[in-house]
Simulated scan of single mutants.
Amino acid sequence: MQYIPDEPLTKAQKYARTATIYAEIAAMEQRKTQARELGLPALVRLVKVAQGNTGQSAHIGRFLLSLYNGRAYPLDPSSLRCIDYDLHQYCLCVLAMDYAPEQEVHELVVGGHQIWEQFKARWGKRS
C-alpha cells in the first residue's frame, strides 16, 4: 500500500523527495557496477574450478547451476562450508552480482551455454 500524506506536498517537499529517489538510484547503480566489477572475475574463476576435478568442483558446479535455475538445481547453502575461503568469497561476489542481473549468469561467460550444459550433465544429478 502506498503512503498518502494528509496534506499535499509543497514544491520543496516534492523536490526533496525526487532528489532522494535519484540519489538512491545512483547509489544502487554504483553498487551494481561494483558488484559486476568484482563478480565477473570471480565467475570466471568459479567456472574453471567447476570444470576441474577437485573435491570442490562439485560444490562450485552446483552453486553455478543454482544461479542458472534454482528450482531445477536447488542448493543446500551449507554445502558452501566445504569449499576454501577464497572460493567462498568468489561465490559471494557472484551472488551479489546476480542480485539484479542484466544477463543470466551463463550468458556472462564465453561459451556459457555449452559450459552450463556440461555442468548439468556432470553436477545436475541429485545424489
Rank of each mutant, 00 (worst) to 15 (best):
A27C: 09
E29T: 05
E37N: 12
L87P: 04
T33E: 14
P101F: 02
R36F: 04
V110G: 05
Q51E: 10
A96W: 15
E7G: 11
G52N: 04
L65S: 03
Q2M: 09
V110W: 08
N69F: 00
A121Q: 06
G55K: 00
Y68L: 00
V94G: 00
H88M: 02
E24R: 05
P101A: 04
P41S: 08
L43P: 02
L108Y: 06
V49Q: 01
C82S: 10
A19S: 11
R36M: 03
V105C: 05
A16T: 04
M28D: 07
E37M: 13
W123C: 01
R126F: 07
R17L: 14
Q13H: 15
Y68K: 01
C91G: 03
M28P: 10
A96N: 12
V109T: 13
L64W: 00
E104M: 10
D98S: 11
R122M: 11
Y90P: 01
L65D: 01
H113G: 14
G124Y: 03
V49T: 11
C93H: 09
A12H: 14
E29S: 07
A72L: 09
I115A: 04
S78N: 09
D76E: 06
V44Q: 14
I115Q: 07
F119M: 01
S127H: 06
L40I: 14
A23T: 13
L108G: 08
P74E: 04
S57R: 05
Q34H: 15
V47I: 13
G112S: 14
G124C: 02
G70T: 09
A19L: 12
L80S: 14
G111P: 02
C91V: 14
V47W: 00
D98C: 08
H88Q: 03
Q30W: 14
A58N: 08
Y22Q: 08
Q56G: 15
E117G: 12
A27V: 10
H113D: 11
R71K: 13
F119W: 01
G55L: 00
V49E: 00
E24N: 05
G55M: 00
L108Q: 06
P41Q: 07
E102D: 14
M97L: 13
G124D: 02
Y85D: 13
R36V: 03
L92I: 14
S78H: 05
Q2P: 02
A12Q: 12
A27I: 15
Y90G: 04
A27T: 13
M28V: 07
P101I: 03
R45I: 00
D86Q: 06
C93F: 05
Q30F: 11
P41W: 08
Y99T: 12
E7N: 08
Y3R: 05
Y22D: 13
G61T: 09
T54E: 10
Q34V: 09
Y99H: 13
F63T: 12
S78Y: 02
L46F: 01
Q34C: 07
Q51I: 02
P77A: 07
S127I: 06
A72I: 15
N53C: 01
T33W: 09
C82V: 01
T18H: 14
G70H: 15
R81T: 04
M97W: 07
L64E: 01
L67W: 04
T54N: 10
Y85F: 05
D76Q: 09
Q118C: 01
I4L: 06
G112C: 15
Y22F: 05
G112F: 10
I115N: 03
A50W: 11
I83A: 00
A50C: 10
R81F: 00
I4N: 13
V44A: 12
Y85W: 02
S79Y: 02
A16Q: 13
